[in-house]
Simulated assay, not measured.
Amino acid sequence: MVQLHENLDALKDLDVNMYIVSGDTPEEQAELYNALEDAYGKSLPFISDPDLKMIELFNMKNNDAAYRGYGLMDTEGNVVFNTINDLWGQELDQTVEEIKEEYEKIHND
């Protein structure tokens, strides 16, 4: 998450709303949100998904937890792309490129 927040500008040209979704409680997320905001002057909003319903929608449920990764939904709420990748932050250039490619596919259809 640190790598993402250090490089949010890499995705600024995409017309998307970005969120961090996790099974953590709102209180746990608020703590992390505040720490990121203190460190970087901003933080992406968090969505608390303790029942893992949204995570399951993205096909990222791993028993009682979530895989790490990223995905895109269209304006109708349909998942159009998802990637499970525990190293997405360390591979941020590749991650950004994949997100941009998938975004372009959606907008060119």
Rank of each mutant, 00 (worst) to 15 (best):
L44F: 02
L44G: 02
D13L: 11
R68Y: 06
A65Q: 11
E37L: 07
G23L: 03
L8Y: 09
S22R: 02
N108C: 08
L52C: 01
N63W: 13
A30Y: 06
L57I: 06
P45S: 04
S48P: 06
E31G: 08
L4N: 08
Y19W: 10
V79L: 05
T95W: 11
S48G: 00
S48W: 01
E76R: 15
V2H: 15
L44A: 04
V80E: 06
L4D: 07
Q90H: 14
E104N: 13
Q90W: 12
I99M: 12
V79T: 10
D51G: 03
E37I: 03
Q90P: 14
L14P: 07
T83C: 12
D64L: 09
K61W: 03
N17Y: 12
R68N: 02
Q90Y: 15
N59P: 00
D74W: 08
A30D: 09
K42Y: 11
E31D: 09
D109N: 07
N108I: 11
Q94E: 14
Q90T: 15
F58T: 04
H5M: 07
D24H: 08
M54T: 06
L52T: 01
A66T: 01
R68W: 04
N17D: 13
E28P: 00
G69A: 04
G69F: 04
S48V: 00
D9L: 14
E27H: 10
F46L: 00
D51S: 09
N34I: 03
K53Q: 05
N82R: 11
Y67M: 05
K12A: 15
E91P: 08
L14T: 07
L32F: 12
K12D: 15
L8C: 07
V79A: 08
D51I: 04
G71Q: 04
E104F: 13
T95R: 08
T95D: 05
L87P: 13
D49G: 02
Y103D: 03
F46G: 02
F46R: 00
Q90I: 13
L11C: 07
I47E: 00
E98S: 09
D51T: 10
A66Q: 03
G41A: 14
W88N: 09
D64Q: 10
K53V: 01
E97K: 15
I84V: 10
G71H: 05
L14Q: 10
E104C: 11
N59F: 07
L11A: 09
